[in-house]
C-alpha cells in the first residue's frame, strides 16, 4: 500500500482570508515568527502497491478536474511510502 498525497494551495495572487486570519492570530498567542501564512488542503489517497506512472497521471487528471479549481488553485502530487 502506498499513499499519494495531493497538496492544493490557492494561487499566490489569490487573496487567502483564512491564512490572513491565522497570521493575525499567531502574534496574539506570542508567536512572532510569521510574516505570512497561506492555508491549503491536503488529500491522502491510498492505493494498492506502488503507484505506477499511469496511476499518477490519473491522479493528476483528477486533481485538475475535481480536487482543485485551476482558476484559483495550484496542486502538487507526490507519493509517500
Amino acid at each position: 500500500m502506498a499513499t499519494i498525497v495531493v497538496d492544493v494551495m490557492l494561487k499566490p495572487e489569490i487573496l487567502d482570508p483564512q491564512g490572513k486570519a491565522v497570521a493575525a492570530a499567531l502574534p496574539r498567542l506570542g508567536f512572532a515568527f510569521a510574516t505570512d501564512v497561506r492555508q491549503g488542503k491536503r488529500f491522502e489517497i491510498t492505493v494498492e502497491g506502488d503507484p505506477t506512472e499511469a496511476q499518477l497521471a490519473e491522479v493528476r487528471d483528477a486533481a485538475e478536474k475535481l480536487l482543485s479549481n485551476p482558476v484559483i488553485e495550484n496542486f502538487t502530487v507526490r507519493v509517500e511510502k
Partner: peptide, 17 residues
C-alpha cells in the same frame, strides 16, 4: 456555474471571513 466553467472566474471566501 463557475465550477462547471460555464462562466469565468471563481467565488472565494468573503474577504472579512
Amino acid at each position: 456555474l463557475a465550477e462547471a466553467h460555464l462562466i469565468p472566474g471563481a467565488l472565494t471566501r468573503n474577504q472579512h471571513l
